[in-house]
Every structure is written in structure tokens, then in C-alpha cells.
């Protein structure tokens, strides 16, 4: 359950899992501490999302580690 904190803070859990994680959070001090640590990290990733970028129709260069 603890590793859900990253997905939770990023908001990428399904509704059901998101709610389940919040209930876990209510009683898990470890996850509470990690939530505080990670809370602003998504904002930093937003710098990438919101940053003006060249629009490209090319396939994303995401090699699958081969």
C-alpha cells in the first residue's frame, strides 16, 4: 500500500484506489511524511507540461530500453 503515495500525489490512481489510499493515509504516518515530502514535486513536473514546446507530429522518442 505504501508505494501508492507517489501515484496518489500525482493524482494518477483510479477513483476507487485514490479513495482507498486516502483512507490508508489517515492512519499511516509513514505515508503522511512522504506526502509532505512529495507534495510539491508534481508542480516541478508541471514546469515541463506547461513549458512552451515545439509541436511535433513525430512519434515520441521513448525507446523501450533495448
Amino acid at each position: 500500500m505504501h508505494d501508492g503515495v507517489a501515484a496518489y500525489v500525482l493524482g494518477v490512481l483510479d477513483d476507487e484506489e485514490h479513495e482507498a489510499f486516502e483512507r490508508h493515509l489517515d492512519t499511516c504516518e509513514r505515508c503522511q511524511a512522504e506526502l509532505v515530502e512529495l507534495a510539491e514535486l508534481p508542480d516541478q513536473l508541471d514546469e515541463l507540461k506547461n513549458s512552451p514546446s515545439s509541436t511535433s507530429g513525430d512519434d515520441p522518442p521513448m525507446s523501450m530500453s533495448h
Binding site: 516541478q44 514546469e47 515541463l48 513549458s51 512552451p52 514546446s53 515545439s54 511535433s56 515520441p60 522518442p61
Partner: peptide
């Protein structure tokens, strides 16, 4: 919906925000 690619970010000079985007892209 495609997000900006990490490798293709155009970062305007002189912006703290752009600098931050570059640092995050590097870290990624």
C-alpha cells in the same frame, strides 16, 4: 494529447521558470 517531449523542450532565455523546466528535464 501529447505532452512536450523531454528532449524537445524549447526553453526561452532569462526565465526562472524555463530554467526550472530545464533542470527537471535533465533530472528526468
Amino acid at each position: 494529447v501529447e505532452p512536450p517531449e523531454v528532449d524537445m523542450m524549447s526553453v526561452p532565455d532569462g526565465s526562472e521558470r524555463a530554467l526550472s523546466a530545464m533542470v527537471v528535464a535533465d533530472a528526468l
